[in-house]
Amino acid sequence: MKIRTKRILMLLLLFASVIWDCLCVLNVLPLGLFTVSVVAVGGYSFMVIFVPLFFPNSAQARENSTYIHDLTKRERQMSGATIGLAFAWIVTLIACIVYPL
């Protein structure tokens, strides 16, 4: 999987997780199901980080990520959106944890 594909998947996964956590906080879904978003985001992050370490000869391990100043305007926007969604996901996750109190 290419780095660009990984970035798009992470962006979509974070967006879905924020929506999922909001539905849990609003009692549309049972509050205990917020752990699904933790497993989804954590599992994907674990896979992206550790699979190249376990399989160093794979194609994805040989592709290098570019520095932020070398990214195109579109890639910078995606990076900013990912950071924003990661922050929103953490906020909604904390809301799910604190809400029952």
Results as ranks from 00 to 15, higher is better:
Ile97His: 04
Ala59Phe: 09
Phe46Arg: 07
Ala59Asn: 11
Ser37Gly: 12
Ile19Met: 13
Trp20Pro: 10
Ser79Asp: 10
Val36Gly: 00
Leu13Phe: 09
Ile68Ala: 15
Cys22Asp: 02
Leu85Pro: 06
Thr66Ile: 12
Met10Val: 01
Ile68Glu: 14
Arg62His: 00
Val38Gly: 03
Ser65Gln: 07
Arg76Trp: 03
His69Gly: 00
Phe46Trp: 15
Ile83Arg: 12
Lys73Phe: 05
Leu85Asp: 03
Ala88Gln: 06
Ala40Leu: 15
Phe46Gly: 10
Leu13Thr: 13
Cys24Trp: 09
Leu11Trp: 10
Asn57Glu: 09
Phe46Ala: 15
Met78Phe: 03
Leu12Gln: 05
Ser37Thr: 15
Ala95Gly: 07
Leu26Ala: 13
Thr72Trp: 04
Gly84Lys: 02
Val18Ala: 06
Gly80Ser: 00
Gly80Phe: 04
Ile68Lys: 11
Ile49Cys: 01
Gly42Cys: 14
Leu33Ile: 01
Val36Pro: 00
Trp20Gly: 06
Thr66Met: 11
Ile97Asn: 01
Glu75Ala: 14
Leu11Val: 00
Phe55Trp: 11
Val39Met: 15
Arg7Glu: 15
Trp89Ser: 03
Met78Arg: 03
Tyr99Gln: 07
Leu12Phe: 10
Thr82Gly: 09
Val36Gln: 01
Tyr99Ser: 04
Ile3Asp: 03
Ala88Cys: 15
Leu31Ser: 13
Ala59Thr: 12
Gly43Lys: 05
Pro56Gln: 02
Ile49Thr: 04
Trp89Asp: 12
Val98Glu: 08
Pro30Thr: 13
Ser65Trp: 10
Phe50Asn: 13
Arg4Cys: 00
Leu14Trp: 04
Phe87His: 01
Thr35Trp: 13
Phe34Thr: 00
Thr66Asp: 09
Ile68Tyr: 15
Thr82His: 02
Phe54Asp: 08
Leu14Phe: 12
Pro100Leu: 12
Val98Ile: 14
Cys96Arg: 04
Arg76Pro: 03
Val28Met: 06
Cys24Asn: 08
Asn64Glu: 07
Glu75Cys: 06
Glu75Tyr: 03
Gln77Ala: 13
Leu53Ser: 08
Ile19Thr: 09
Val18Phe: 08
Gly84Arg: 01
Leu29Gln: 05
Ile19Ser: 06
Gln60Ile: 10
Leu101Ser: 05
Pro52Asn: 05
Ile83Ala: 15
Ile8Lys: 13
Leu93Asn: 04
Asn57Trp: 01
Phe34Trp: 12
Arg74Gln: 14
Pro100Met: 11
Ala16Thr: 11
Phe50Trp: 15
Val39Glu: 11
Ala61Asp: 00
Cys22Asn: 05
Val91Gly: 00
Ala81Trp: 11
Asn57Ser: 07
Tyr44Cys: 02
Met1Tyr: 02
Phe50Arg: 09
Val36Ser: 02
Trp89Met: 06
Thr5Pro: 07
Arg4Lys: 11
Ile94Leu: 15
Cys24Ile: 03
Phe50Glu: 05
Ser58Ile: 02
Phe50Leu: 14
Ser65Arg: 10
Trp20Cys: 06
Leu29Arg: 11
Gln60Tyr: 05
Ile68Pro: 04
